[in-house]
Design a protein around this nucleic acid. Structure first.
Lengths: 129, 129
DNA sequence: ATTAGAATTGGAATTATTCTAATCGCATCA
DNA sequence: TGATGCGATTAGAATAATTCCAATTCTAAT
């Protein structure tokens, strides 16, 4: 019996989950790999990625990536927002005028000096229903 | 004389710029490479990347990437926003309660079925001043 | 126990991006 | 005019991020 908990939460996945739950910040996959190895020395990078995907799908961890798999370039220079389809990945422009108080509040809460602010809407595009 | 326009806008960069200006959507670097080759068959992938960085720095093209170079994972499961430092890349959480009308407006304008909405603040973190 | 099928792992491959040595092009001067 | 020096630019090679898929492991049914 390899797995303590029933189907799904294997010891590899438990290690990865523990790493994330015990961390404060926003870890990269590389960092998760490093820490996971201390718990489970033989674990592979690919398994860390598999586990991260599994845990994210199960809703056990959060992921910051905005649904993009690579950088995109366009001719638009003015500030604008984006909608990204969670099924097909399509990316469309959006113009949501952002109230100035919104930016001010962001600056105050984050203690950042804001250069720009942008909204990302994740959901299903018209084609994907 | 290799360059039509003075220092900087070389023929490689002109090709990349033309590709982006003549496109409607949000091209990946790979797509820019394919199209650029039709204009300048010998151009290399690395030069396309160099050109994209140059053109972005000059403010001639737009880039969608939110300042992140890889996916990050955390233990937070509730909806929240992020601030990203444009100097050091540090990523911090932010809580900007988003008015419901904001999401509604996003849905209306994009024609997407929204799953979530998130604000990204780009700027300088306290350490980077 | 044996076996069949589904779930999981991780080495290998792929994709995205950056590094850096070589080259190019302009300016200066003999 | 044609070296010479030097910063800018290019692109092959390397690295980093992520995914693929064949082999293995696990579970449940016999």
């Amino acid at each position: 019996m390899n797995n303590v908990v029933s189907l799904g939460l294997t010891k590899q996945r438990q290690a990865v989950l523990r790493v994330i739950q015990e961390s404060e910040g926003h870890l990269t996959a590389n960092e998760v790999f490093e820490y996971s190895r201390r718990i489970l020395p033989g674990i592979s990078f690919a398994t860390v990625y598999n586990s991260l995907r599994y845990l994210r799908n199960e809703g056990l961890i959060g992921e910051v990536r905005f649904g993009m798999d690579c950088t995109r370039y366009d001719r638009t220079l003015t500030r604008h927002d984006h909608a990204i389809c969670s099924r097909c990945g399509s990316l469309v422009d959006l113009d949501l005028p952002i109230p100035d108080e919104f930016l001010k509040k962001g600056e105050r809460l984050s203690k950042f000096k804001a250069e720009s602010i942008e909204v990302v809407l994740r959901g299903l595009c018209p084609e994907c229903v």
